[in-house]
Amino acid sequence: MKLTKFLATIVFALGVTGVAAAQQMQAPPQGDQVDQLDQLLDLDENQQQEIRSLLDEAERQLTPKEQEAQALQARLGDYVGPDFDENAIRQDAARLGDLTGEITAETVLLQSRIEAVFTEEQRQRLDDAIAQQQQQMQDLQDQMQQQEGQPAQPAQ
């Protein structure tokens, strides 16, 4: 449950859908993220500035790692074929694994640093908003499953 809450916090607060998505997409501009948090949590000016600083630093650290990971993924795809080089594949796959671990660690650290900026009341509001969003997602999934179980309505 704690992992689910953590991942939901990342998705909700930062617009990051996970390491794989971070490697495939650009994150929204940091101003958008801070503005969203401000609207939800009523951040003061110092909190906004600190979060912007944290996001800028994370972007400086993560961007080269994400780019290298994308390049490794592409190169691994190029290895597929009858004349493959097992050593090269294993070496690139190991480096990709290391990078994924580094990106994950930096993402967790970023989330922790951002949450440290919030007051206890703001953390509670964020938790409440996340719980509400999770409930809405669960309700939608339940509704979709119910619709799948119903026979198709004939066209008239």
Rank of each mutant, 00 (worst) to 15 (best):
G31F: 03
Q33V: 10
V34A: 14
V34F: 05
D35E: 11
D35A: 09
L37V: 04
L40E: 02
L41F: 05
D42I: 05
L43P: 03
E45L: 12
E45G: 07
E45K: 04
N46V: 14
N46R: 06
N46C: 02
Q48C: 06
Q48H: 03
Q49K: 12
Q49H: 15
R52K: 11
S53A: 10
S53E: 12
L55F: 04
L55Y: 01
D56K: 13
E57I: 05
E57P: 03
A58F: 00
E59Y: 00
R60G: 04
R60W: 01
L62W: 00
L62E: 07
P64D: 05
E66C: 02
E66Y: 01
Q67M: 03
Q67C: 00
Q67F: 01
E68I: 04
E68T: 08
E68N: 11
A69C: 02
A69I: 03
Q70I: 06
Q70W: 02
Q73T: 11
Q73I: 07
A74V: 05
A74Y: 02
L76A: 07
G77Y: 00
G77L: 01
D78H: 12
D78W: 13
D78Y: 08
D78R: 14
Y79G: 13
Y79Q: 15
V80S: 12
V80P: 11
V80T: 10
G81K: 08
G81C: 09
P82S: 06
P82E: 14
D83T: 08
F84A: 06
F84R: 13
F84M: 15
E86N: 08
E86Y: 02
N87D: 14
N87V: 06
N87R: 11
N87M: 09
A88I: 11
A88N: 12
A88C: 08
A88F: 00
I89V: 13
Q91K: 07
A94H: 15
R95C: 14
R95K: 12
L96H: 02
L96E: 15
L96M: 11
G97A: 05
G97K: 10
G97C: 02
L99C: 10
G101E: 07
G101C: 06
E102C: 06
E102N: 12
T104L: 07
V108E: 10
V108R: 03
V108G: 04
L110H: 00
L110N: 00
S112Q: 12
S112F: 04
S112A: 10
I114W: 15
E115T: 13
E115D: 13
E115P: 03
A116G: 15
A116H: 15
V117D: 07
T119N: 10
E120D: 05
E120K: 08
E121W: 14
E121N: 07
Q122N: 11
Q122G: 13
Q124Y: 03
Q124N: 14
R125Q: 11
D128N: 14
D128C: 04
A129Q: 03
I130R: 12
A131V: 09
A131W: 00
A131M: 07
Q134V: 09
Q134E: 05
Q134L: 09
Q134I: 13
Q135A: 08
Q135N: 06
Q138Y: 01
L140D: 08
Q141S: 09
Q141H: 06
Q141K: 02
Q141M: 04
Q143T: 05
Q145F: 00
Q145Y: 00
Q146L: 07
Q147F: 00
E148V: 09
